[in-house]
Amino acid sequence: MSKHEIALEVNGRPVSATVDPNMSLLELLRTEAGGLEVKLGCGEGVCGTCTVLLDGEPVNSCLTFAVQVDGRAVTTVRGLAAEGELHPLQEAFLTHAGSQCGFCTPGMLLTAKWYLDRHPRADREELRSALSGNFCRCTGYTKILDAIEAYRDARQEVSVVD
């Protein structure tokens, strides 16, 4: 198996690595890029714990090989806010208890943020549908959706004031 030199951007920082073709993006992020916030759940594209944004779009890092993302930009949940700070969506998850064990939370946050950036007025049903591929085994989804809706509403108020 020939190794490949790859260079990508993770949360705005350049990362380069020498990888075997069968190393997944998830593995690369957790090892070479130090991104332990990216979680392995099912490994089959179903559960959403491994969600990252690839050039701004949600993908399964478990079903993407690292060599495929040479030259691309990856955002993990750490990329949402500066080190040591929380993004308002994360604050909303705290306020509404949208996270218990936290394993699904990075995927929930990234998917919700991506969807609301594109559909700022999405209603609860649309949010539910966008998040249908992100499984939570703790909260039962109600509080997650409450948190996301609260963030959506707060964001709209801010932009009205602007």
Binding site: G48, Y115, N134
Partner: peptide, 9 residues
Amino acid sequence: IGNVRVRHR
């Protein structure tokens, strides 16, 4: 089809 991640790849 699948979920938003599957549909983006």
